[in-house]
Amino acid sequence: MTQAPDLPLWAAILAAIFVLIGAGATFIGSMGLLRLKTFYERVHSPTMGTTLGTVCILLASACVSSVVHARFSVHEALIFLFVSLTTPVTLMLLARAALYRDRVAGDESVPVEDDRSN
């Protein structure tokens, strides 16, 4: 059932710790989607998965593939770059779309548009 590459003990323990921290952070972040009450609160929690979760799992992956292929493996940095640059953009756009929709719907709980806007 459990299948994994055969690594030296230090690498195995390091990778195991990182992968567990990363998966745990992602799990808690996604749990926020269930537990938080409003949309604006829910937007905050998945960023746990995209920051701490992604970084830790990528570190574990880099650690494993560096040892397995016996060379320094850093191409995981690419995923980190893409995810850390794109997630803020999507969340920002999504939150602004939600704000726009709430304002159109006349929701009192969201702040009104700044009158002096361009």
């Binding site: 459990t2 195995a12 195991a16 992602t26």
Partner: peptide
């Protein structure tokens, strides 16, 4: 032993990520 440690950790992580999904 080393394989078991990493294998269990990865399986546990997959369960957690599955729940997150």
């Amino acid at each position: 032993m080393n394989v078991l440690v990493l294998g269990l950790a990865i399986t546990a992580a997959q369960v957690l990520l599955g729940c997150a999904m």
